[in-house]
Amino acid sequence: MGKKLAKKLGDNYKYYYGAYYTKYNGYDIIIKYDYTSLLYNLTLNVKGNENIDKLNKMLSKKDEFMVAKYKNNLLTITEACDHSRDIPKLINNLLDDLTKYLKDNNYKNICKLCEKEEKTTLVSIDDNINYVCDKCVKNIEKKYAKELEDRRKIKENIPLGIIGSIIGCIPGLIMWFLLSYLMINPSVIALIIMFGSAYFYRYMAKSMKLPGLIISILIGFIFVLFANELTNAYSLYNEYINQYNINILDTYKAIPYYLQTNDIFRHTYNQNLLLSIMFFIFGSFTNIGIFRSYIATNKVKNLEVK
């Protein structure tokens, strides 16, 4: 689709996370296709007359299913489009007339944040991409720098963080055991364990730097392993309680023996362990996310700088 769009736009467009960003005839334009509703949305940050009946009339001449909405300085044009490959054709047919209309009717291109008529740049702020003026970018960068500096100054209380991380894992452990009891594969709870480990570490330690990241991930990992052991111990317990005088601790200690001697048990154990580790890896992104919030310096990215 990009190549076809380029016929109209030249090389003057960017593609990020499923959306096209371009400046055309002095207007910032974002085009996104929605695969669920089979529509594309074309949005512009413009300030002007709130009545857009004339624009809608013009659009309906092109396509009776094309609609424009204007609210809070955001002009959105929506058109049905069965396949994303059809977008270039529809867009190329629209861009000139649309921008001419906006110009003729004195709609001003504005910054997404301050809503002032300023020169804009395409930037990513906390992974939200939009056209923002330089002044706003500088303000945000300043704000983030101060925030980071403040966070850097917070002393990380590692012992309390460890306690917090352990406490944070316990609800997940209980949920894990409950799901096992209900005979539902509980591996997905690894996400909750990691979440608890990360958030409670930060809550108790008041910060999360590199040691905090490693500790919280390690504690979460131990809990995920332990929870997995517990599930397997419980399944052994259920299987043998009618024949032997045993408790969960007995079956927990017997896991290595059954791993060596029972193929079905070994297979189930490995499968559960693999799933748990997979969800542990996904879950550890929470820890990394929190860690990044304390060290990240690239929250604002200028996407027009090559």
Binding site: L225, F226, E229, Q243, D250, P256, Y257, Q260
Partner: peptide
């Protein structure tokens, strides 16, 4: 922590469980 976890999880013992029977 890693060493301790290595001792306790998941390879506690390779002994035959020797459970008493009902």
């Amino acid at each position: 922590l890693v060493l301790l976890s290595g001792c306790a999880l998941p390879f506690q013992s390779k002994n035959y469980p020797a459970w008493t029977t009902k």
